[in-house]
């Protein structure tokens, strides 16, 4: 294998990696501080579509993470960029709290469908409405296709299953804008002036975080917090660069071996 260039950037997942709902992963704030003292650029990349950037930031600050808004790159931002490029009016199946990130987008008489994590919209009537728009040729834009996510009461269905169902119903493919799409990872790097080979991604979702990043030419570290289930690291090939207990261990590995 070709020699790796020195590490210049670290992409960090939020939900499941730094925090689980309103609790920080133990030690994560301290580990982030140590990472900031090293010569790497950091960006926080997330498929957490229920919340706009502002809300995400407020929570992270409440949990005492040292993060600024321009360091966060979300799949909602990526979706909005795509809607603007295509000049379409979306039926927005996203959580109400995500709507601020779509402010100013015309949603009258929709001719596109955007799906995020929106349990309140995943009912029979709304799914039928989305289906009929798709049959009329509306494009299907998925913020991401995660299979499930972790809630306090256990695992819960993500948007991926609903996107897959609509794809099957209409024999079409959704345009996915979030992780694990290659374009998402590359877009996140754009303002950082680094190449994928100089970047490592840390996350709790083996396919979407680690597999996606590695597919884009980065290295990936899988942490055993959040949605991680035993054996997840065997689900992708090539395997993760590293699988470790938590964000703290991931930072230790970077500081000791990759700089």
């Amino acid at each position: 294998m070709a020699a790796r260039r020195a590490l210049k950037a670290v992409l960090v997942d939020l939900s499941g990696t730094l925090h689980i709902e309103d609790s920080a992963v133990p030690g994560a704030q301290e580990a982030l501080r140590r990472l900031r003292n090293s010569p790497v650029a950091i960006k926080f990349v997330t498929n957490t579509t229920k919340e706009c950037k502002k809300t995400l930031l407020e929570r992270l600050r409440r949990l005492e993470f040292d993060i600024t808004e321009d360091e966060i790159f979300t799949s909602l931002t990526a979706a909005r960029n795509l809607l603007e490029q295509k000049h379409v009016r979306p039926l927005l199946l996203v959580d109400n709290s995500a709507l601020p990130d779509f402010e100013g987008i015309d949603t009258n008489n929709p001719n596109a469908v955007v799906i995020g994590l929106a349990p309140e919209h995943f009912n029979y009537q709304t799914m039928n409405k989305a289906f009929r728009l798709l049959l009329d040729g509306a494009p299907l834009i998925a913020i991401h296709k995660a299979r499930y996510y972790k809630r306090k009461d256990g695992l819960a269905l993500g948007p991926g299953p609903f996107v897959t169902g609509l794809e099957y119903a209409t024999d079409t493919k959704a345009t996915v804008v979030g992780k694990p799409e290659k374009t998402f990872f590359l877009e996140a790097l754009r303002s950082m002036g680094c190449t994928p080979e100089e970047t490592i991604m840390i996350g709790d979702d083996c396919r979407d975080d680690v597999g996606g990043a590695q597919n884009a030419g980065m290295r990936g570290i899988l942490v055993k917090t959040g949605k991680y289930r035993a054996g997840d690291e065997d689900k992708i090939s090539p395997a993760p660069h590293l699988t470790c207990d938590s964000f703290t261990y991931a930072v230790d590995h970077i500081l000791q071996n990759l700089l």
Binding site: N128, R147, L157, P161, T164, G165
Partner: peptide
């Protein structure tokens, strides 16, 4: 109306 296959695919994927 969407039929059962759509939700079958959803659970298969999940």
């Amino acid at each position: 109306k969407l039929d059962v296959g759509v939700y079958m695919k959803a659970l298969e994927y999940a």
